[in-house]
Design a binder for these strands. Structure first.
Lengths: 193, 193
DNA sequence: ACCTGAACACCGTTCAAGT
DNA sequence: ACCTGAACACCGTTCAAGT
């Protein structure tokens, strides 16, 4: 039942998850769903709980603290990218902090190994988290938008002295992986002594 | 009419913007709205266009390129934080790239002054943009969530060797401004020679 | 040119009724 | 314990009809 709901959300988007659509998929009357889950909000909460558990299953990898920080951030990123619609449900139900808590704990341990403590460590955890979230959101944003807008360098037209190669790099297909890595490296570099 | 819609969205949230609610506020029949704007999607597009124009009105300030980069990122951040619900409409209507384009152009100019060109400059623009977006999203996320979750250090309980002061800093009220500045400084520092 | 009410298909949800 | 159909209040939207 929750599984069927998850399939609908990931395949057709959250708006497609109507109680009637779900009932049809299960071959059951709409009202039967209410007996099992209460209502739509409760159903979304169960969906969110699943994703929170999945995303929270962190396994840091690497020989040094810096490598393990990159590892945690990278796997967090790829998991968020793998289930975008369900991650959105988590956010909408206000469970984002719970989803990120295990990654925060893992990052905290590595930052401690780097000698960072207290408020400085807490800030570093959040900077890394913001970078992961921001780059994932931008990557998803591009895939949502109309191509003619992302691709059209004409939007830069009123700046004649603009760097042509850069404009093209920002207008064409973006290298999200490179952006993610560059930002992460800058952050990790700032942590050192 | 678009103004009334904007007020509803910012004050009561996007779900509260129903055609009937808007008609009531305007003292008019529901169907009259359709004559003016077509349908709900078109109304949201007009709303989005307004916000895109507002957010896009960038005025870099500062004596050095680095200072002006910080200025652009900071004013972008505060504008996004000032109208969260309407910014969300922009995102949902796929106009996020248009909303950020002027900031990208301003950042590009400053990066050029720092000697960055081509793909490297394009990546830097996106890293900065991701940082702004990520920190804004996290700040908004916290205000949405149940307090007991954000505040409860017990979630860290299974890690006895955890840094107490850091856990408290991550559990209590967060200093979003500090996170924003720390990340931005790390990124800007990575741009130099 | 602008506004209206009636009507339609679609929502989430409740409830009494069945097995 | 589990499922059902009928019914309700709410959506967005269309359309013929008014001024």
């Amino acid at each position: 039942m929750v599984e069927a709901a998850a399939q609908i959300v990931e395949a057709e988007g959250l708006p497609a998850l109507t109680m009637r659509h779900l009932a049809d998929k299960l071959g059951v009357a709409v009202t039967s769903i209410y007996w099992h889950v209460g209502n739509r909000a409760a159903l979304l909460d169960q969906l969110a709980a699943r994703v929170v558990a999945e995303i929270g299953d962190i396994h840091p990898d690497g020989a040094t603290p810096a490598e393990r920080i990159v590892s945690v951030a990278s796997s967090l990123r790829s998991r968020l990218l793998a289930r975008p619609e369900l991650v959105w449900v988590v956010h909408e139900r206000g469970r984002t902090p719970a989803m990120f808590q295990p990654a925060q704990a893992a990052l905290a341990a590595e930052l401690g190994a780097l000698g960072l403590r207290g408020r400085r460590a807490a800030t570093a955890v959040q900077v890394i988290q913001a970078h992961v979230v921001g780059s994932v959101l931008l990557e998803r944003t591009v895939s949502r938008s109309r191509v003619d807008e992302v691709t059209d360098p004409a939007a830069w037209g009123d700046q004649p002295e603009a760097d042509r190669e850069m404009v093209e790099a920002l207008s064409g297909p973006l290298d999200h992986e490179a952006v993610f890595r560059a930002g992460l490296e800058a952050i990790v570099a700032s942590l050192g002594p």
